[in-house]
Design a protein around this nucleic acid. Sequence first.
DNA 1: GTCTATATACAGATAGAC
DNA 2: GTCTATCTGTATATAGAC
Lengths: 188, 188
Amino acid sequence: MTRRNDKRSRLIQAAVQLFQQQGVNITTLANIAALANVPLGNVYYYFKSKESIINAVVELHIQHLKERFQEWEAAFQQGKDRLAALIRHQNTVSEQTIHSGEPIGALCQELSKQTGKLPELSMALMQELYQWCQVQFKQFGKSDSEAGVYANHLLSALLGNGIVTLTFKDSAFTKNQTQVLLEWLTKL
Amino acid sequence: MTRRNDKRSRLIQAAVQLFQQQGVNITTLANIAALANVPLGNVYYYFKSKESIINAVVELHIQHLKERFQEWEAAFQQGKDRLAALIRHQNTVSEQTIHSGEPIGALCQELSKQTGKLPELSMALMQELYQWCQVQFKQFGKSDSEAGVYANHLLSALLGNGIVTLTFKDSAFTKNQTQVLLEWLTKL
DNA sequence: GTCTATATACAGATAGAC
DNA sequence: GTCTATCTGTATATAGAC
């Protein structure tokens, strides 16, 4: 790993964190540079614009999703169990959700309202999540369209719960929603 | 209605619209003033800061919610039917959701990450929605805690579906989620 | 009450020394 | 490759003429 990549990835890491905590629009390049311990002017050696940092952040989220999906695919044979892992994962990060909300939902909401290529990018991120869920539902016998409806319902519930938990600043909203979704999943 | 209130309410209306379409952080006072046909400098005769406009916008949302709730309470005797009206309402504005998302969820997500009094304000808005749902669930026999869990699930599903529909820019996600929620409600 | 002009602050982005 | 200094644009907010 070169020194170049080291600073670059530190900047991306810092951006991921700040976008999540404060939102994309509020976060300045100065914020990111400061958290990454990189001088402001140097940022432009690694990224040509703020938008290109956003791009890199979304790509990283997609990569992290893929890694997590691979873990669950290796750990669980059944689609139901894999989806249960996704639901439980939400619960394990509930304390973080209190302060920053659900990262992917918040990011997509913000980027979808932007101009330029950002909306498409956020669609790709959401698609990653949606398709994986859909595949898991199909794995245990649901049809294409059923699986789509269920994936939509599951994602909506998870992302929306991020908003509720963040707004009320109370992880109890995540905890009881987790139970409801696990019961729903079991009965499918 | 005095001329003063006329301009003031035009500014609030414009802010409601722009906050919904673009988000709070991106929207400038110049945007709001232009849409309301009020010179920029004049805005400060009616509002002492951007934050006070945000305040007024949230208050208006709360007022609109109360009005809608009163209509549904008058139109339907049963809590179940009232909640069904809330679910169907989401479907009637689905075309708007494609472009701007679900207004209250988006607003709360943004304001909850801000500093100052805005997070409390967004909590009050969400609380309005949450409590009304909870009351309706109790109306048809659910206990306090059951009603809380159901209200949480319903709100999460509705607000989260706003993110999914906005990101994919496809109202089909709202339509099939509406069906799922109505069936879920019927079986409770 | 209304509006123009402007002060102030800070954002994204660049030039160029080292 | 790295960093300082700075340009340029634009946001919030104010001063003050009318």
